[in-house]
Design a protein around this nucleic acid. Structure first.
Lengths: 73, 73
DNA sequence: ATATTTTAAGGGAATATCCCTTAAAAGTCA
DNA sequence: TGACTTTTAAGGGATATTCCCTTAAAATAT
């Protein structure tokens, strides 16, 4: 389901535990997100997009453009 | 919270009931989303972005660029 | 091979979701 | 202005989902 998030994470050499720590959630919860067992809250997508300097649209596979629009603030 | 979604909806002269019908949810649920009483699932944001031809990033206030990213498919 | 690291399954208490009814607010027009 | 209509939001509850825990499985390293 969220294949793209998994791919970016692996590209950047991060483990699920590191992601979980960054997001302040449990590793198993993060795993549930990647697998698609749980819906990823938009707040989480927001932080992942920040971390990987991309857009939520890219993360959820709405676009293939990886570079984000200019961010606010 | 989701001021921007409300604004676009009003710009396009749509009522909450019309949005709810499009999204196949109840009007009160849609209201809860706009108010920020409930988290908007990404699937819903996806459909709203489609309807208004913009990006999820714009809807959730990550960017001020209103045009959508090049879409997939 | 086995020890270590990383990821995923099972399960349950706590929480959030979604919708219902209905109330409040906003808009219409005589 | 007041009655009427339309639109939006509050209260509340059954149900579904979330999040984390423990632990197992899978992958990786030594």
């Amino acid at each position: 389901m969220y294949e793209r998030i998994r791919n970016i994470r692996e590209d950047r050499d991060m483990t699920q535990s590191q992601m979980a720590e960054y997001l302040r959630i449990h590793q198993t919860t993060y795993s549930d997100y990647e697998i698609g067992k749980l819906n990823i809250p938009v707040q989480v997508l927001d932080k992942i997009a920040d971390l990987f300097e991309t857009s939520i649209d890219y993360l959820v596979n709405r676009t293939d453009v990886e570079i984000p629009y200019p961010l606010k603030k």
